[in-house]
Amino acid sequence: MQPQSNAAIDPLIQDNWPKLKRFFRAKVPEPDCYELVQDTLMEFVKKHREKVLDNPRAYLWGIARFKVLKYIGGKRSATAEFDSKIHSVMGPQTTLSVRFDRRDKLMNALRSLTAEQQIAFELHYGEGMTNEEVAQTMELSPATAKRRIKEARERLQILLANSSHLEIADAYRSG
C-alpha cells in the first residue's frame, strides 16, 4: 500500500467535520457520534457530486438532523415513540448524572431540552445560522424556528441561572 501523503482532503470535509462532530457529540454517545459524522458527510458528498444543491449548508445539516433523530428514535424502548418536539436526547434510559465540570453542566442543560429546541439552539447560536437557515434545515416555518430558539434560550436561562446562553453556545462550540 503506497501512502499518498498529504492527499488533498476536500475543504468541505475539513471545515464541516469539526462542526458535525460537536453537533453529534452533544447528543450521541461515543463512539457512535463519530460514525454519524462520517455517515453524514459521506451521504452529503455523494449527493453533492450528483447534482447542484441550492443551499448545501441547509442540506448538510438536514442530513445531520435526520440521522440524529433516527439514531435516538432507534435507541428508545418500543413503548415510547421518540418525538423530537417533546423528548430530549437524554431519554429515561439515561440514569447517570454527569455533573462533573462546568462544561458538562452547560452541555447537560442543553441536552435536557427537547431535541428540536436543542438542535435549533445549536444551529443558530453554535453554528451561526440565521432564522431562515435554521427553518430551512429543520423543515419548519421561520416563525416556528424562531419560537424554538426562543424556547431553548428561555429554558436554559431557567436551568442555569448564572450562565448566559452565549456561554452555553461557547461550551457547545468547544466540543
Binding site: 500500500m1 503506497q2 501512502p3 499518498q4 492527499a7 488533498a8 482532503i9 476536500d10 470535509i13 467535520w17 459524522v37 462520517q38 458527510l41 459521506m42 458528498v45
Partner: peptide
C-alpha cells in the same frame, strides 16, 4: 478518516 472512506488518500 472520512477522506479515506471516500477513497481519497490512504
Amino acid at each position: 478518516l472520512v477522506g479515506v472512506a471516500l477513497g481519497v488518500g490512504a
